[in-house]
Amino acid sequence: MLRSLLLALALLPAFACAQEAGDWIAYRDAYRHMIWFEKYGKPKQFLQNHLRLRPRDAGVSTDGLRLTLHGKGAQLALPLDALGRAVFPFSRAAYDDNAELAWNRKPGQITSIAWVSIVTRPDGVYAAADLRAACEQLLAYLRSTGGANGKRCAGVQFSYARMEAAQVRYQGGDGAPVPLAAQEGPAFPGDAVAGFRVFAYRFSAHPDAGQVLTSATPLAIAALLE
């Protein structure tokens, strides 16, 4: 179940990975792919887009991983979250300067990609119908890029650090909340790095009239496409 591929993310046109000559990409290449989401005109209020640094295999450590924008005479550190995502800096000056985005890993260890995921809520309360809508929005966006053909939304996945004692429950009607089973796996299906505490909420198992309750804000919410 946790191997359900979030194909759109894998199939999104990946802008230049860490090139053979070095651990960097051209800012202009990244910009061209990140701007697609900004210009996407269909509903996307449940979605967010990041520039993500993603290990090619499980043996690549992300401890101390840093991303820096290098322009003419200036550098800007871009903070990464626990899953290697950064807020992309849309900058005309960086574009005109032909700036570079670089990270501190050997060439070929890390790929860079435009990464779409579902927005988390600080109150930890997710209407089941909204989660389905979020998955459908993500699927529609991925199809607009030419990916996820033949896939459907099967559910969503909440991910946490392995040692975090988080709980995710489904509340339907007037009944008692039903805990979702915790498993170990990747934060996003298809990632090489696993070891996260993940909870899969599958649409077929619960009515849309309920809600999902989380005890803490997850690192990410991924769509499960099958």
Score class of each variant (00 low, 15 high):
residue 36 W to A: 09
residue 60 V to K: 09
residue 208 D to F: 10
residue 68 T to Y: 04
residue 178 V to N: 05
residue 212 V to W: 06
residue 217 T to A: 13
residue 133 A to N: 11
residue 220 A to T: 12
residue 182 A to F: 04
residue 99 A to R: 06
residue 210 G to M: 02
residue 127 A to Q: 12
residue 130 D to G: 05
residue 52 R to K: 15
residue 86 A to D: 04
residue 155 G to C: 06
residue 25 I to D: 06
residue 222 A to G: 07
residue 165 A to E: 12
residue 212 V to G: 07
residue 70 H to S: 08
residue 154 A to S: 09
residue 87 V to Y: 02
residue 33 H to Q: 14
residue 133 A to P: 08
residue 160 Y to G: 01
residue 82 A to C: 11
residue 103 W to S: 05
residue 54 R to F: 05
residue 110 I to Y: 03
residue 190 G to F: 01
residue 112 S to Q: 14
residue 93 A to K: 15
residue 182 A to E: 09
residue 84 G to C: 11
residue 222 A to S: 15
residue 204 S to F: 08
residue 31 Y to C: 06
residue 33 H to K: 10
residue 48 Q to E: 13
residue 108 G to T: 12
residue 12 L to W: 00
residue 46 F to N: 06
residue 211 Q to T: 05
residue 78 L to N: 08
residue 71 G to C: 06
residue 209 A to T: 15
residue 156 V to K: 03
residue 149 N to C: 02
residue 77 A to R: 12
residue 29 D to C: 13
residue 59 G to S: 11
residue 11 L to K: 03
residue 128 A to V: 09
residue 149 N to R: 08
residue 224 L to Q: 06
residue 204 S to Q: 13
residue 126 Y to R: 01
residue 126 Y to H: 03
residue 72 K to T: 14
residue 55 P to Q: 13
residue 124 G to M: 01
residue 134 A to Q: 01
residue 197 R to L: 01
residue 113 I to D: 02
residue 147 G to L: 02
residue 59 G to E: 15
residue 29 D to N: 13
residue 86 A to S: 15
residue 28 R to W: 11
residue 66 R to M: 05
residue 76 L to A: 14
residue 210 G to C: 04
residue 171 Q to G: 04
residue 177 P to E: 10
residue 7 L to I: 00
residue 141 Y to M: 00
residue 13 P to G: 11
residue 106 K to A: 15
residue 6 L to E: 01
residue 224 L to A: 02
residue 13 P to E: 04
residue 147 G to Y: 00
residue 187 A to K: 02
residue 91 S to M: 08
residue 204 S to T: 07
residue 64 G to A: 03
residue 181 A to C: 10
residue 155 G to Q: 04
residue 1 M to D: 09
